[in-house]
Amino acid sequence: MSEWNPLKEINNFSKDVNSLLEKSPFSMFYGQGTPRVDIYQTEDDVILKAELPGVAKDDLDVFVDDEFIKLSGETRKSSEINDEHIYKTERYFGTFSRTIPLPVEVKSEEARAEYRDGILSITVPKSEAAKRKGRKINID
């Protein structure tokens, strides 16, 4: 029997809610302004990649905790666009914020971030406790 992991339960619940909202009739309003992310892990690191097209690096804030990453910032509307001349607008402008639970505990003080071509990449080393979970056993 595996040990109960509340972070894993929260992450699974979050996935279920996101899936439900994406399939709902209101999906066109869901997620506006929140960056889409991919999270994966290697043996030593947890890696998050977020889509942030049109967001300037100076308009981004990243906060890394041992159990989550919080992304916030602002997508600014171009000053050359005059509202009275708009024919159609679908892009989101304004502030956004998203807190993403991590699959394992990490060393937040060693986090690194890089922003290139509208993709924010954050790499955070796993804590020693997270690396040691589980072990191979011999079969008698």
Rank of each mutant, 00 (worst) to 15 (best):
M1G: 12
S2F: 12
S2D: 10
S2G: 08
E3T: 15
N5E: 11
P6D: 04
L7Y: 12
E9N: 10
N11E: 09
N12I: 10
N12K: 01
N12A: 15
N12L: 13
F13L: 15
F13P: 10
K15P: 02
K15Y: 11
D16N: 14
N18L: 01
N18I: 07
L20V: 05
L20F: 15
L21H: 02
E22F: 07
S24H: 05
S24M: 09
S24G: 03
P25K: 00
P25R: 08
F26N: 15
S27D: 06
M28N: 14
F29M: 03
G31E: 02
G31R: 12
Q32D: 01
Q32N: 10
G33V: 05
G33M: 03
P35G: 00
P35N: 00
D38T: 12
D38M: 11
I39C: 01
I39R: 04
I39H: 05
T42W: 01
D44M: 07
D45E: 10
A50R: 04
A50E: 03
E51K: 03
L52V: 01
P53V: 00
G54M: 02
G54I: 08
V55R: 04
A56N: 11
A56F: 12
K57G: 08
K57P: 00
K57V: 07
D58F: 08
L60W: 02
F63M: 06
D65P: 03
D65E: 12
D66N: 14
I69G: 04
I69Q: 02
L71Q: 05
G73Q: 02
G73C: 06
E74H: 13
T75Q: 14
T75Y: 11
R76M: 02
R76D: 06
K77P: 07
S78D: 09
S79M: 13
E80C: 11
I81Y: 05
N82P: 06
N82I: 13
D83I: 06
D83L: 15
H85C: 12
I86W: 10
I86V: 14
I86C: 07
I86H: 01
Y87K: 12
Y87Q: 13
T89D: 15
T89R: 15
T89Y: 11
R91E: 14
Y92A: 00
T95E: 14
F96D: 06
S97M: 13
T99P: 04
P101N: 14
P103C: 15
P103L: 10
V104H: 12
V104C: 05
K107S: 14
K107P: 00
S108P: 02
E114K: 06
E114N: 06
Y115G: 04
Y115C: 02
R116C: 08
G118N: 02
I119D: 04
S121H: 03
I122D: 03
T123I: 09
V124W: 01
P125R: 00
K126Y: 04
S127V: 03
A129K: 12
K131V: 05
G134V: 06
R135N: 10
R135E: 14
R135C: 08
K136R: 15
I137S: 07
I137C: 15
I137W: 10
D140C: 06
